[in-house]
Nucleic acid binder design. Structure first.
Lengths: 230, 230
DNA sequence: TGCAAAAATAACGTATGCTTTAATAAATGC
DNA sequence: GCATTTATTAAAGCATACGTTATTTTTGCA
């Protein structure tokens, strides 16, 4: 996980190392660099138009985040996400997001703190009606990000961010294979109500169960379709 | 967090980067490099007897793990752990160790899986009788490591490891200021029983409450003694 | 022809030097 | 004498070159 506190979007021009981290991550998420494939430092450096040094630094960070593995003399290996990896990642996400829901509920937040979360829920409802899954996925991610923001724990935020990067490929893959996420929308609405009501126990329970269910569904789809990201 | 899967103790000789990571971490944990202090790459390189390159790589990793911050032109800053940082870290540890307890209970493990955990509990009991807190702390850490091992989730393992590194200073500081950890021993015993009985709900509850209590105590001691690790 | 040993190659790990840029000091104007 | 601008310095960021070592290829011999 990058526990790196992504330097709050300052105007300072990005270093090559930062560009390399971001670009390589993007290439992995967009499946340009496929899971299981190997890439030499020098190749990546050529591809990114910079020297090996910043590329090497970037790969060290990304290895720490679990996106790839540095295998000396064979280049960096883009890590496949096996079913058991997905299970592990979802266990972590479930634990931390459940706690995030609990923490958010424990705070006494005023109504305007929830504006963005409510927008996300509305967007999901609308997307559901037209079965616009891309839009739904965007709104869903937005909602989860809002939840994390409300919890106000920077460590949880960065870990969750890193792990979401890892499962994004799988989510994209299953987006059109899963049943319509009606239940998800209900869960989100109930969660937000519980947080507003300050009911930390309910919030935690609702969101933990939501995550457990979502994870189980994702994994069963991957298994059924033999979608192993190798 | 270093989510780095510490390359399983292979016989291959360590690279300077690995040595630098390990050494700098050790210097921080042992308070040789004090929280809040700044250190130039070149100073650290000289101190470690290597060039700037591996030191720089190491500091990038350690920044990702949250132990320090790279401040251009001012060197790496050893991050102090404020009270609110401790709160954050304990929230993460509580969430993940609670899940670890749950996972361990869900597995059907045979008796010899618990040998080491039981040894640790015995060691804690003995240490309690003579109020040997150093030994108790070692055994306590051993018990927690065993719990994580039983849960068998490599991601949880590495995150917890990274965050434990961060709170180790605070634990050492409060070891002799806290009341005798009698309650902790009871908790551990009950937790292990629940795991053996396969009672995942109880295991999770017991350990979550244990962690919440331990965290609250640690923080109240830090506040009372104005022990802010700046 | 197949295998082993040696040579060649190539990739990494590290050191080093150059360039850019920020911080500090100096100098000049007001 | 103070503020503002310029010059100087020093540290980081990056490229590059070199030494080391794993891997591959070639060569010699059975």
């Amino acid at each position: 996980m990058n526990l790196e506190a992504t330097r709050s979007s300052s105007s300072r021009s990005k270093s090559n190392t930062e560009i390399a981290i971001q670009t390589i991550k993007k290439l992995i998420i967009e499946n340009e660099l496929q899971p299981g494939s190997n890439h030499l430092e020098s190749e990546l450096a050529a591809k990114l138009g910079m020297s090996r040094t910043p590329v090497r630094e970037a790969t060290l960070i990304l290895e720490a985040q679990g996106l790839l593995e540095i295998v000396p003399r064979h280049g960096v290996k883009i890590l496949p996400l096996s079913i058991s990896d997905m299970v592990e990642v979802y266990q972590v996400l479930t634990a931390l997001e459940g706690t995030a829901a609990e923490l958010a509920a424990q705070k006494s937040l005023d109504a305007d703190a929830f504006v963005e979360a409510e927008k996300a829920i509305l967007m999901m409802d609308e997307a559901l009606e037209t079965d616009d899954r891309e839009t739904w996925a965007v709104a869903d991610e937005k909602f989860h990000n809002e939840l994390i923001r409300l919890a106000d724990n920077s460590r949880i935020k960065s870990i969750v961010s890193v792990f979401n990067d890892q499962v994004r490929r799988a989510r994209a893959l299953t987006l059109y294979l899963r049943p319509s996420p009606t239940k998800s929308n209900e869960d989100h609405r109930r969660l937000l109500d519980a947080i507003k009501a300050g009911d930390a126990v309910a919030a935690k329970t609702i969101h933990t169960e939501h995550r457990v269910r979502a994870g189980a569904m994702l994994i069963s789809i991957l298994e059924k379709h033999k979608l192993i990201l190798v």
